[in-house]
Amino acid sequence: MPHLDNDRRTGQNLAVLAEALYIANLLLIPVIGFAILCYLFLTQYKQAPPLARSHLEQTLSASLWIAVLFTVFAAGILLLKNFGMEAVSMWIIIILVFTMLHASMVLLGVLGLAKAMAGKCWRYPLVGKTLPDNCSRYDKV
């Protein structure tokens, strides 16, 4: 089974799984998706090939940053509420900012998933860790 051997060598399946869990956490199973991703990171990271390692790192780091972003956003809203902001203005901000943030994060996940499926590394803009040098060696051209 050369195909399976190749997957094991490059860690492509694990990379795809990491990206899928990142998206699932945002769309279908919030928190649970993140918990499984953490479990995967803790159990697989050390022995994983560079491609899978990179995707595990990227998705975990991006998920954590998303949690921080949403917490800061929620705190900002509470602060505005305490300063007496009109309820309707608050709802406009909540719906627009949440939709834009959430949709952008999902789209970045889609890009990451597409890269993983193509056996390539991918760095989440701003929130992703710098890619290791040895990652690109496993890219299929």
Binding site: V110, A114, K115, M117, A118, K120, K140
Partner: peptide, 14 residues
């Protein structure tokens, strides 16, 4: 539509 986005980017990557 989600699948379509994954599809398009996956094809361009490959």
């Amino acid at each position: 539509f989600f699948m379509m986005t994954v599809f398009a980017f996956n094809m361009v990557n490959q």
